[in-house]
Design a protein around this nucleic acid. Sequence first.
DNA 1: AGACGATATATTGTCGACAATATGCTGATG
DNA 2: CATCAGCATATTGTCGACAATATATCGTCT
Lengths: 222, 222
Amino acid sequence: MNLATETPITAADKTFLELRTAIVEGDVTAGSKLSETELSTKYAVSRAVVREAINRLEACNLIERKPNVGARVVDLNTEGLLELYQVRESLEGMAARLAASNMTDQEVQALQSLLEKHYKTVQSGDNYYQEAGDVDFHYRIIQGSKNSQLITLLVDGIYHLIRMYRVQLGMSGPRVTTAFEEHRNIVNAIANRDPELAEMLMRRHIAYTRKSLQNKLSQEQA
Amino acid sequence: MNLATETPITAADKTFLELRTAIVEGDVTAGSKLSETELSTKYAVSRAVVREAINRLEACNLIERKPNVGARVVDLNTEGLLELYQVRESLEGMAARLAASNMTDQEVQALQSLLEKHYKTVQSGDNYYQEAGDVDFHYRIIQGSKNSQLITLLVDGIYHLIRMYRVQLGMSGPRVTTAFEEHRNIVNAIANRDPELAEMLMRRHIAYTRKSLQNKLSQEQA
DNA sequence: AGACGATATATTGTCGACAATATGCTGATG
DNA sequence: CATCAGCATATTGTCGACAATATATCGTCT
């Protein structure tokens, strides 16, 4: 018996994942068409598996499909990103609330030490780690909610979408300072097992980020 | 030129929709297998379109798939439903908040008259309308948020899931009285353009429903 | 010359067949 | 009698081909 639940990876899985990163990272430009035949030759698979991949991408809201016409990478407007941040505020707020109740002490400690590490690199000014650290921070709290529906929604769905939007709109990287103080306060609330406060702080944190984005975007348009 | 943007409906679309209602309504029992060949003969289409439909169902979290094994209707535990209600509380709370800001005066009036109609049928004791009315009420507020991401998430995703859970667990129909008072307070908050209050009341409303479900379910298990 | 219509081309939708994997059965063995 | 190996069957994964639809090209007419 093999405990490592070896899940066989189908060709459709692989092409889906490759295509998704290609889209999310912006390697295929926004609004460009996804030709089935073209992709099937490019990835050396049949059209059937390409179609399956495209179907899944559509389910993720990463592309749009019109029957008998084809699939295009969603062309993103500023409004969509801001809408997404409202959804995120709501869901991650709930995640923080649940995390304050459901995280194990061990997980809380791990979160605290992550924060510690984060603090050091903020001062050193390593921008790359900053972004990775930010994602990791949010990711752990989401997991800490222990609500599988919530986790699936955020990790499999919204996060990829947000990432794509940000790349497309040239908004890569979080706020310059990543608002370390806010992170610390959230962690404290969770460590104190204070769900209401944790939710409120997380919502504020994301709302601030949203407003910061909004400013940047309206500035660029001017 | 035809203004009615006639969207061609593919066979895959149809089978997807039929299958979804069949699953959501409980016509195919929980945990049962979805055989591709069987379904293709039943719906008189090729396996390819069945596969596409199944793919979409998987994206909706209505079924689970294991490679080389097949797809089964998700077998639902109580916990999953309660988790879903937490997500719903979060998202519909946000929807109510946004609706208080973004609904037109006309939409608010329509909502108020719906409430009126609702009130009459609560007293007459027409149980069917009560459920339909409840769904309609929530649906309008969601639409009123004007946040397309939020709308898609709730209408295309979570609502079908919740419906399926409820049917499977024998929890059809909302709370006996549908908590008319709560609905009224929510509408008032929206009409007064009070986002914070609208959100808070909607969250409470759903949290109550959730607890009511929890009681019912734990009672049954005893 | 511009607009419209018919034809040609390309792309997507659908289908049936083959290959790969999992499941169930049969029978041999301890 | 239980267990396990090997085979037979059934189901899913993948593929290439045909049909239906949309797009592009070209010619004609006003």
